[in-house]
């Protein structure tokens, strides 16, 4: 087992090195053909000779972006230029709040729907219609009615994370083993106790799966939402660097989005393991 992890790690590193090497080879500076003959003034105005982003950036330039941003993650140079940690903080706060609100709504509703076949059927058509709507499609409506771009961002996170959670909770609650419910019934356990002591532990793994999926989606959506609304957050950072066509910084931001997304997923993975049981 140990040697397997070691081997896998070795291969991972090798793959990474091959990837970087290939990237480096592919972006080696080409001989600039057009520069010869043109007069010097024109060339200067076109930024020739100066450091200039031509085509896809080589790995070294991206590495430089990593060093500059990670060495000073908390700087604040006015409302439109803040360090990467502050931007990620803003995004995480939005995701956290929207997700928390979704949990508040989805858990009681999911229990109610899961425990009552009648409600399940009654709610089903609404859930089926609302679920496939792209969360960003809500954005114009949210901006118009909520009259605040920040609240709209949180609303979009809320609306995108509620459906997977709701469906999973309802499913988990509905598919608790009949035997256990019947045992509870013969012991005349009251409904609240039944919900907390029998159904919740039994459905917990499914519920957490729903939450894990929701969190993944929320993190995907926040980047797009912030690119639309702007102001703060990692999505705004990507947009701002896109303005400047500064690809190294965009690649840096993409990597950060990936790393944070992975960390969020790992947290929910751990939680899931904690509540898993063997029958």
């Amino acid at each position: 087992m140990r040697s397997l992890t070691l081997k896998a790690g070795f291969i991972s590193v090798l793959l990474f090195l091959i990837f970087i090497g290939a990237w480096h080879m592919a972006t080696l500076p080409k001989e600039s053909a057009g520069a010869t003959g043109a007069d010097a003034e024109y060339a200067a105005l076109m930024g020739k000779g100066a450091e200039k982003s031509g085509g896809f950036p080589p790995p070294l330039e991206v590495g430089k972006a990593f060093v500059t941003y990670l060495s000073d993650p908390f700087y604040d140079r006015g409302p439109n230029d803040k360090g990467i940690a502050i931007q990620l903080g803003h995004s995480l706060a939005r995701v956290g709040l929207g997700f928390f609100l979704a949990v508040l709504v989805a858990v009681p509703l999911g229990f109610a729907i899961g425990m009552s076949p009648l409600l399940y059927r009654a709610f089903d058509p609404f859930i089926q219609v609302l679920k496939p709507i792209s969360p960003l499609a809500w954005m114009p409506l949210a901006l118009y009615t909520l009259k605040d771009s920040n609240v709209s961002g949180i609303f979009v996170i809320f609306i995108c994370s509620i459906w997977p959670m709701l469906i999973n909770i309802a499913f988990g609650v509905a598919s608790v083993r009949r035997d256990w419910i019947n045992v509870a019934r013969t012991l005349e356990v009251n409904p609240l106790r039944k919900a907390f002591l029998v159904i919740l532990p039994a459905a917990a793994p499914t519920i957490l799966t729903g939450m894990r999926i929701s969190m993944g989606i929320a993190w995907l959506v926040i980047v797009a939402a912030e690119m639309l609304v702007g102001g703060t957050g990692i999505g705004y950072f990507v947009w701002n660097e896109w303005n400047n066509l500064a690809l190294p910084n965009v690649i840096f931001a993409i990597t950060m989005i990936g790393v944070v997304g992975m960390l969020l997923d790992m947290i929910f993975g751990r939680l899931q393991k904690l509540v898993t049981y063997r029958e």
Partner: peptide, 28 residues
């Protein structure tokens, strides 16, 4: 030029604001 404001290379802004610019066809 910095990221807090326009976030553009200085030479680009200078060409716009001073009116001495390259037109993309080889002329200044």
């Amino acid at each position: 030029s910095p990221a807090n404001y326009l976030n553009q290379p200085k030479t680009v802004l200078e060409q716009v604001l001073t009116g001495k610019y390259a037109d993309g066809l080889g002329n200044v």
